[in-house]
Design a protein around this nucleic acid. Sequence first.
DNA 1: AACACGGCCAACCGCCTGAAT
DNA 2: CATTCAGGCGGTTGGCCGTGT
Length: 348
Amino acid sequence: MGRSPCCEKNGLKKGPWTAEEDQKLVDYIQKNGYGNWRTLPKNAGLQRCGKSCRLRWTNYLRPDIKRGRFTFEEEETIIQLHSVLGNKWSAIAARLPGRTDNEIKNYWNTHIRKRLLRMGIDPVTHNPRLDLLDISSILSSSFYSPTRTNMLGVQSMVNPELLRLAASLISTQRNQNQNFVHQNSQESQFGIPHHSQLQNLDHQTPIQEISSCAPLSNNPSNVPFTSESTNLIEPNVDLHSSFSQFGTLNCQLNDWQKYLDNFIAMDNYGYNQQVINPQSNMTSSNFEFNSHLSNLSTPSSSPTPLNSNSNSTNYINGSSTEDEREISYCSNLFKYEYQDILESNVFV
DNA sequence: AACACGGCCAACCGCCTGAAT
DNA sequence: CATTCAGGCGGTTGGCCGTGT
C-alpha cells in the first residue's frame, strides 16, 4: 500500500485567492511553518488542496519575494542563464533571489522572448535567426555546428550534398582543435569558460593554432590574439543619434572580435536588422553601420522612440529605457557569439 | 460609450521523480 | 518489489485590464 490521498479532489475551491484566504494561509505558516502541504489546508481552515496552497505561498505570499519590474541586470542574467540552461525556470530562479520560477517564466514569454525575436535572435538557441542570415554566412559561420543547431531549418534550404560538405569541414576543424581546447578550457559557473580565461588564452595561444582555423571562420591568419583583447565582454559601442531616422552605430572592434564572422546590427526598434561581416566592413579597427529607417515600413505597433528629437550621443552603459536596452542587447551579440564559439570547441 | 483586441500574469494542469508504505 | 502519492517542474489557460477603433 502507498500513501493515503492528500485531499479529496471534489469540494475544494479553485480559482483566484481572496484576501481572507491569503490571510489565513499567511497566519498559519507564520505560526506553524510550511512543512506538510497535505495537512496544511485543513489545519489552516482553507477549502483548498495542498498543492494550491503551496503555489500560492511560493509564488505570491512568501515574504522574501521581490516585487516590481525586473532590473536590467536581472534581465541580462535571465538571458545568460537561459542560453545555458534552457527552460529550466526553477534553476534560473535559484540564481535570482526574490524571483519565482513562475514570474521568470512569465517575464520571459511576455517580454524577453519577443524582444529577442524582434532583434533577430532565436530565443531557443540564442543564435541569430536562420531566416535572417544568408546561406553563405551560415555555412561559413564557426558556431553553426551541426551538433548544436537545428539542422532541419538548414536542410530545407540547402543542397544536401553541400550540407554534408560543410558538416565535414566543421567536423574536421573541431577535431583539429579538440586537444588544444581541452588543455585550456576551465568552465564558469554556467558551464561556459569565463571571459577572464580568454585573457589567459591570449598569452598561451600560438599563432599557428589560430591560423589553422582560418578556412572555417575566415580569420585573418596573420593576426594573433594580443594582450589588448581584455575588454572583450563589453565592446566599445557608441550610438550616435540613435533616435533619429538615420542612426549610426559605431563599434570599436577589439582584436578578438575581428575573428567573428557576422554581427547583426539593428536599429533601436529592433526591426531594421542587417547582417554585417566585420571583415568586409571594417576600416582599420572600426566599422560603421548606417541604419536607414526611412526605407522600412515600421509596424504600427512599434513603440514611440524616446527622445525622438535628440541628436546627442547615447551611451549604452547604465541605460534604462526600453529602446536603449535593445541597443545594449545588440552589442551583447558579440558576447553570445563568443560563448557559442567556445562551447562548440571550434574556435580558439 | 461600447465594443474588440491583445498583453499580462496568477493559477491550474499534467507529467515526472523520489519517497513512503 | 510494487504501488501510491507528495512535491516539484514546465506548459498552458483564462480572466482582468489597458488601449485602440
